[in-house]
């Protein structure tokens, strides 16, 4: 742990966006997991890895895609092995790598504990991520959820499958709480920006107070 903290000191700006609007820094820990990723599954080994849970989120079109394989002990429900593949930027790769380390620590995490991992927990272990990169750790969390759901499906425990509930906020334009969460993660920090991204409230103005509340909620959740 001590070592990890030392690594978490931020260095100078590593990446400057091409539109020059923003620059961000990666902690030494992010860089370590990016340059030396742990527990990944190379494409040529894909058929050879034994697993009983597979989860995937994202798509190449949206710029991030993650795949997680788990080998779960059916009796103890401990995660005995975890592998992953990620298409994405440095923080996406580092987040999945760190997540896999967390799952395998101390002889493997139990699935019910794994389900409690929050994006912030991954970020904390990485020593933080630049604000606009937080969605990368959210994706890791979602890929894990999808893998564990797959485990429940394969072991006939359908009642334990957790489906991400969406709640429609703007009933006219069908804008959901997930859309609002996404928009906040993509940088909408005012209602004006949120509305520009999601159009929430332009169809059904009655929902504006609720949308504003969700904006505050997700802002606090991800940006403190």
């Amino acid at each position: 742990m001590k070592n990890e903290n030392k690594k978490n000191k931020r260095s100078e700006s590593d990446v400057v966006s091409y539109d020059k609007k923003e620059k961000w820094v990666y902690t030494e820990n992010v860089k370590d997991h990016f340059f030396n990723p742990r527990n990944f599954l190379t494409t040529d080994m894909e058929g050879k890895f034994k697993y009983n849970a597979l989860g995937m989120v994202g798509s190449p079109a949206c710029g991030d895609m993650m795949k997680i394989w788990l080998l779960v002990d059916e009796k103890t429900e401990k995660i005995k092995d975890a592998k992953w593949q990620t298409f994405g930027c440095a923080s996406a790769i580092a987040s999945t790598s760190m997540l896999s380390v967390m799952l395998l620590e101390n002889g493997g995490m139990k699935v019910e504990d794994a389900l409690k991992i929050k994006p912030q927990d991954i970020m904390e272990r990485l020593g933080g991520l630049p604000n606009r990169k937080i969605h990368c750790s959210v994706l890791g969390d979602k890929a894990l959820q999808s893998a564990i759901n797959d485990f429940f499906r394969r072991t006939g425990q359908n009642d334990r499958i957790k489906v991400e509930g969406k709640k429609v906020i703007d009933k006219v334009l069908n804008v959901t709480d997930k859309d609002i969460e996404e928009a906040v993660l993509e940088g909408a920090d005012t209602f004006e920006k949120l509305q520009k991204k999601t159009k929430v409230g332009t169809g059904d103005p009655v929902c504006i107070p609720e949308a504003e509340q969700l904006l505050r909620f997700y802002k606090e959740k991800y940006f403190g």
Binding site: S17, Y18, D19, G63, C89, E186, G187
Partner: peptide, 13 residues
Amino acid sequence: STGSACTSHSLDP
């Protein structure tokens, strides 16, 4: 340099 979304402000390429 790159024109990738991950280096932009808007997350669009």
